[in-house]
Amino acid sequence: MENQLKTEKSNMTTITEFVLLGFSDIPNSQWILFGIFLVIYLTILMCNSIIILITRIDPVLQTPMYFFLNNFSFLEICYVTATVPRMLMDLLTQKGNISLVACAVQMCFVLTFGSSECLLLTVMAYDRYVAICKPLHYPLVMNHKVCVQLAIASWVSVVPGGIGQTCQIFSLPYCGSNTINHFFCDVPPVLRHACGDTFLNEIAIHLAVVVFIVVPSLLIIVSYGKIIANIVKISSASGRAKAFSTCSSHLIVVVLFYGTVNITYLQPKANQSEGTGKVISLFYTIFIPTLNPIIYTLRNKDIMMALRKLISKLLR
């Protein structure tokens, strides 16, 4: 019995690194995937940087809505950078070795930036609610000081949760296979390799999901319920169209982001497929951030006009 305990303890301390399998199941397409994801990453960086630039320099875009969009674009850059460069390196070297410390750091950044994105999307929904439902009070309620405070709260309030959640997960013993069928250190695939009792960790994860995903989702639903109710009351068709256009882009982004995140973190552990989880993670970490700048620019006349003015200045 004593020898068995020693053997188990030895096995539990053998893992010093994980191996991210990524897309090794399709070895003949590694270079193609590297090229695709590199183009996508550079597109995300370029498009969001352009949005940040024009919302900072164009006088027409100096409003709370574009202030939050500026923050959201910068957050998207941070969020994608937490996963894609590492994935590109693994595709380039065809090695997925990652130390426990590096894995923990990546998970902490993903959780922090992801939670911050949930809160910022909620703040943006509140901004649209005040603009449409309480237009006379909008300049007073959403003054610059309040906007800055809401943005800071969205960034800072999630940091303790991200660090605490990561520390709790990596305080568990890990043994057996160290291969993770994923392209980054996400919570479900890492926790699946823990040898100890993960009950408390799963409880903490569900609590975090309630605080940072479920509650913000409900607040956004309530906000848009009131927004739609007010839009319907507008007598003119052009007025309704204009009111809806100011929030339709944000609503599309919310549905795409929250939909895929909810599938990942609210699905019971027993029902999670590693392959399916990896595909879903691709959507909310890479593909949706690629669509966001396109959705915001193509559906927003002010941004399109500011972009044309910027291009015309550069071509002079």
Rank of each mutant, 00 (worst) to 15 (best):
H193R: 13
F170M: 01
S116T: 05
V261K: 11
D302S: 13
C133V: 07
I234K: 11
V187G: 02
G22P: 10
L91C: 02
I52M: 12
A151D: 03
P293N: 00
K226I: 12
F283H: 07
Y265C: 10
N3R: 07
V156L: 11
C167G: 03
G161C: 10
C175F: 13
A102E: 09
I169D: 05
P289K: 08
H193L: 12
L91V: 04
P268F: 02
K309F: 05
V110Y: 01
G161W: 08
C195M: 11
Y66P: 10
C133G: 11
I311V: 12
V105Y: 03
I57W: 08
L140N: 08
T276G: 00
N178M: 01
A102Q: 02
I32Q: 03
G22C: 04
A104L: 02
I311F: 09
L191D: 09
L172H: 08
F170T: 13
E76D: 15
L307T: 13
F68E: 00
V209W: 10
N48V: 06
M107A: 05
F34K: 10
S73P: 08
L136H: 13
L314A: 15
N143P: 14
G114L: 05
K9T: 09
Q106N: 00
L21Y: 12
S281V: 00
M1C: 00
A229R: 09
Q165P: 02
F113Q: 01
N262R: 14
P27T: 03
A306K: 04
F283L: 08
H206D: 10
M304L: 11
N201D: 08
L251M: 13
F109N: 07
C47Q: 15
G164M: 09
D197C: 12
I221Q: 05
E17D: 12
S177F: 01
L256Y: 03
L42T: 04
T43W: 04
V209F: 09
S29A: 07
S273M: 05
A153T: 13
V141Q: 05
A151Y: 07
I205R: 15
K134H: 13
D186A: 10
P27F: 04
G196P: 12
S10N: 09
L191W: 02
I288G: 03
C247D: 09
R56P: 11
L69Y: 15
T13G: 11
Q267E: 00
F257M: 04
E117K: 15
C78H: 13
F67T: 15
I98A: 14
I295W: 00
F72N: 15
L120D: 01
I163M: 07
T297A: 04
I57N: 10
L136M: 05
L200Y: 06
Y174W: 10
K226Y: 13
G259F: 02
C108K: 07
V110T: 08
S245I: 06
G239T: 10
V110I: 02
T276D: 01
A241Y: 06
T13S: 15
F244N: 08
N143V: 15
N70F: 12
V279M: 07
L266P: 03
K226F: 12
V211E: 05
F67K: 15
A208V: 09
L256G: 07
P135C: 06
M89G: 14
I36N: 01
T260S: 08
K313H: 12
S248D: 07
D90A: 09
V209K: 03
M1F: 02
N178V: 07
C47G: 12
V19K: 11
C133F: 03
I52N: 06
L191M: 12
C133T: 01
T122H: 06
C167Q: 10
N48G: 11
S24C: 01
F212P: 14
